[in-house]
């Protein structure tokens, strides 16, 4: 029941990856990365439900918080053109 959903999300991630490679400016790529991170978190939760393993969801929580910090730092870098 859950694996087709995970495959569908993987297709969405592939479409977003195209924007990540094409994106004309750095903020465009960052938007792609941010969207991709959210989808990765959701796919981890879906996979956790699929295999009935709690550890996937724990990893998803940590990934959510770490990717948030990453996005903030890249945004700060783009804003000032250096740290």
């Amino acid at each position: 029941m859950w694996l087709p959903v995970a495959i569908f999300l993987a297709v969405c991630i592939a479409i977003i990856l195209v924007r990540l490679f094409l994106g004309p400016t750095p903020p465009d790529r960052l938007v792609g990365l941010d969207t991709l991170n959210t989808l990765v978190i959701v796919s981890m939760v879906i996979l956790g439900a699929s295999f009935n393993e709690v550890i996937y969801i724990d990893v998803a929580i940590v990934y959510a918080l770490l990717s948030f910090v990453t996005t903030l730092f890249i945004a700060k870098y783009i804003e000032k053109g250096g740290f």
Binding site: T25, P26, P27, L30, V31, D34, T38, F68, T71, L72, A75, K76, I78, E79, K80, G81
Partner: peptide, 15 residues
């Protein structure tokens, strides 16, 4: 999610 969107928008406008 909304917080990082805010950060990206601000960075884009300032750059």
């Amino acid at each position: 999610n909304p917080t990082s969107a805010h950060a990206i928008g601000r960075a884009a406008h300032r750059s």
